[in-house]
Design a protein around this nucleic acid. Structure first.
Length: 322
DNA sequence: GCTAAAGATCGTCACATTAA
DNA sequence: TTAATGTGACGATCTTTAGC
């Protein structure tokens, strides 16, 4: 069952990593996966993970796996020159299996050079502003970061709509408030919005006199929401519905639709957050594994130094006893 | 160049833990 | 108690590699 996996308490792991470490005064230089190590910081991070409890076992398997892989790689320089027999084939197969972890090494290299702040994974669209607004009745605007270049006034078929961008510096979620100065014609358009995911449309319900529309923009199209007064409407890709189809329901079904869409929105939000959490979790895990690898390197060197020291002391002792 | 195999990555689910 | 968050497991998909 999944119970056993839960023994690997994540908080414990975090605490282990954050435990104040003692700096071990060892002078050495080493390298892991070709990366030169700063001895002090390596020892620091290594010390902090030494007390790792249940998860340590699991990760140690990985670490030893990497070591084996590295060893195998050294011995696999090109195809075997002479032998063609079954044994040679098996040997080559073995070597291949051992040496195959290129992407993993690449990740480690990236991790070791990653010192800056987390870079946003959401590609920013170039600003897309007034050019699409010329056809009457359809307003094409830009979402995402392009909102900062957004015009404050655009003309719809029903009149003038004032746009106020709440905070264009917040990535991922943007709120756009539209105040309808002229009144949106009942049953008519619909605002067409250009987002990172292509044009999207908001359908204004028939016979609705509204003076206020607000829209939330997430990086994920299915989460984007428009509100007319108290009613929420999901902003969907324009391609999912034929032009002119009114998505909004009659007043009697508003509550039901509202609930369903609210649930759907919550789910999308939860999935989005979980997606990000999973990414963060994996990043931490890689970092943790890297710390353990560093620890291995440090301990190996430390061991080597101690053996040398013991050797020289033994020699000294032998000389003196003679 | 094509293909199969294996590893890596990602999104999601389920559940444990934590914070309010 | 409950909502939010963290993380292992799983399956789908992508990437990389070797062999042909």
């Amino acid at each position: 069952m999944k119970d056993e996996k839960m023994n690997n308490n994540s908080q414990e792991e975090e605490k282990d990593v954050e435990t104040p470490a003692t700096i071990v005064p060892v002078v050495m230089s080493t390298a892991v996966n070709g990366q030169p190590l700063q001895v002090q910081s390596v020892i620091h991070s290594a010390q902090s993970v030494i007390q790792a409890t249940p998860i340590q076992q699991a990760v140690q398997v990985q670490v030893s796996g990497v070591n084996v892989s590295e060893a195998g790689e050294e011995s696999s320089q090109g195809p075997t020159a002479g032998g063609d027999g079954e044994i040679e084939r098996k040997k080559r197969q073995e070597i291949r299996e051992l040496s195959r972890r290129p992407s993993y090494r690449r990740i480690l290299n990236e991790l070791s050079s990653d010192t800056g702040p987390t870079v946003s994974r959401i590609e920013e669209e170039p600003a897309n502003t007034t050019e699409d607004m010329e056809s009457p009745g359809t307003i094409t605007i830009a979402a995402g970061n392009a909102l900062q270049n957004f015009p404050t006034t655009i003309v719809s078929s029903g009149g003038t709509i004032q746009l106020a961008n709440s905070d264009s510096s917040v990535q991922g979620l943007q709120t756009l408030t539209m105040t309808n100065a002229g009144g949106i014609p009942a049953g008519a358009i619909v605002q067409s919005i250009q987002t990172q995911d292509g044009p999207q449309q908001i359908f204004v319900p028939a016979a609705t006199e509204t003076s206020h529309i607000s829209m939330d923009f997430f990086p994920y199209p299915s989460v984007n929401v428009a509100r007319l007064g108290d009613v929420q409407y999901q902003i969907r890709p324009a391609t999912t519905l034929p032009q002119g189809v009114v998505m909004a329901t009659p007043a009697s079904l508003h509550t039901q639709t509202q609930l369903a869409e609210e649930a759907s929105r919550k789910r999308e939000l939860r999935l989005m957050k979980n997606r990000e959490a999973a990414k963060e979790c994996r990043r931490k895990k890689k970092e943790y594994i890297k710390c353990l690898e560093n620890r291995v390197a440090v301990l190996e060197n430390q061991n080597k130094t101690l053996i040398e020291e013991l050797k020289s002391l033994k020699e000294l002792y032998c000389h003196k006893s003679d």
